[in-house]
C-alpha cells in the first residue's frame, strides 16, 4: 500500500508530462474533430469488427464478381460432360461440377447474383425501414402504436412458412428471393429508426428549429436523419452479408434461384449430390468455403 502510493505520488511523475501542448497543435486537433461527422460514422462502423470485416469482404468479393467470370474462357452454363467432377487444374481452376461446368466461373457468377441480392435487400430495407420507422416515431401517439403493433405481428410470422408460401405463389427466382428477404428484413431498421426519432424529436435543438418555423421536412432532413445516419449505415452494412447468407440458405433448400443460374446457395446444393461419392470433393468445398 505504502509503496504503491509512492509510485503514483506526483513527485514521481516526470515534469515534462506537465508541459502544455503548443497552441497550434491544440487548435489543430479540435479543428479536425469537428471537421466532419463522417468521422463519427466511420468510427462507429470500424469499431464494430463484424461490420468492418463485412465491408472488406464485400469490396473484395465485388471486385472478383465483376472481373471473375471474364478470367476464364468458360461461361457459367457451358458444359463439357466428359470432364465432370474434375479436380482443380490448369483449365478448370476450381475444377468442374457434376455436369462438367467450370466451378471458378460459376463461383464468381454466383457472387454477382448473391451480391445483387445483398445490395437489393439493403436498399429495400433502407427505404422501407427508414420511412416506416421515421413516420412511426415522428408521428408518435396512436399512429406509432398501430404501426408498431403491425411490425410486431410481422415479426411473429414464421419466416420459412412465409417464404415457402411466396415461392408457391410467385414461383422461385431472383425476384421472389428479394421479396422474401425484404418482407421481414426492414423490421429491424424500422425499429431502430423509430427509437432514434422518438428520442430525438423532443430534443431541444429540434424544438428550436420548430420555434424558428422549421417545417417537418426540414426537421427530418436537417436534424433527425443526420443524427440517425450512423446507426442506419452500420445496420445496412450488416444487412448485406446477412442477406447473402439468407439467400444461400434458401437456395440450399431449393427455394432460391433456378438452374442454370448459379448462386452460392444453389452451387452448394448441387454439389451435395457429388459430396457423397467424393467426400470433401472440390465442388462442394469451394462454394462453401467462399461463403
Amino acid at each position: 500500500m505504502e509503496s504503491k502510493r509512492k509510485e503514483t505520488s506526483p513527485s514521481r511523475v516526470p515534469d515534462d508530462l506537465f508541459v502544455p501542448l503548443p497552441k497550434e497543435q491544440q487548435v489543430d486537433t479540435r479543428q479536425q474533430k469537428g471537421d466532419s461527422y463522417w468521422r463519427d460514422v466511420m468510427g462507429r462502423l470500424f469499431s464494430n469488427k463484424l461490420a468492418t470485416l463485412g465491408l472488406i469482404l464485400i469490396i473484395l468479393l465485388s471486385i472478383m464478381a465483376i472481373i471473375g467470370p471474364w478470367l476464364t474462357e468458360h461461361t457459367y452454363r457451358s458444359q463439357s460432360i466428359l470432364e465432370s467432377n474434375t479436380s482443380p487444374n490448369g483449365t478448370y481452376w476450381f475444377g468442374t461440377d457434376e455436369l462438367g461446368r467450370d466451378v471458378f466461373t460459376r463461383v464468381w457468377y454466383g457472387a454477382r447474383v448473391s451480391l445483387f441480392i445483398g445490395l437489393a435487400a439493403a436498399v429495400i430495407e433502407f427505404i422501407i425501414g427508414v420511412t416506416y420507422g421515421g413516420i412511426s416515431g415522428y408521428r408518435g401517439g396512436r399512429v406509432d402504436n398501430v404501426m408498431m403493433r403491425i411490425v410486431d405481428v410481422l415479426y411473429g410470422l414464421p419466416y420459412l412458412l412465409v417464404v415457402v408460401l411466396l415461392m408457391v405463389v410467385m414461383g422461385p427466382g431472383l425476384f421472389t428471393i428479394i421479396v422474401a428477404l425484404s418482407i421481414t428484413g426492414w423490421i429491424g431498421m424500422a425499429r431502430l429508426v423509430r427509437g432514434q426519432v422518438l428520442q430525438l424529436k423532443s430534443a431541444e435543438y429540434v424544438l428550436a428549429s420548430r420555434v424558428l418555423g422549421g417545417s417537418n421536412s426540414r426537421i427530418i432532413r436537417k436534424h433527425l436523419l443526420p443524427n440517425t445516419s450512423g446507426p442506419i449505415i452500420v445496420s445496412m452494412t450488416l444487412t448485406i452479408p446477412s442477406a447473402i447468407f439468407a439467400e444461400a440458405f434458401l437456395s440450399f433448400l431449393g427455394l432460391g434461384v433456378q438452374a442454370p443460374v448459379a448462386s452460392w446457395g444453389t452451387m452448394a446444393n448441387d454439389a451435395l449430390g457429388s459430396f457423397k461419392p467424393v467426400i470433401g470433393g472440390d465442388c462442394f468445398s469451394r462454394p462453401s468455403l467462399y461463403h
Binding site: 469537428g34 461527422y37 430534443a203 431541444e204 435543438y205 424544438l207 428550436a208 428549429s209 420555434v211 424558428l212 418555423g213 422549421g214 417545417s215 426540414r218 436537417k222 436534424h223 443526420p226 443524427n227
Partner: peptide, 28 residues
Amino acid sequence: QMIFQDPYASLNPRMNVAMCIGEGMDIH
C-alpha cells in the same frame, strides 16, 4: 423566440455554428 435550458441539448451536434445560427435566416 426561445432560449433553451440545456446548452448541451439545444444545439444540433451535426451542424456547425454558422448552420445553427443561420437556420432561422434560411427558414425565413
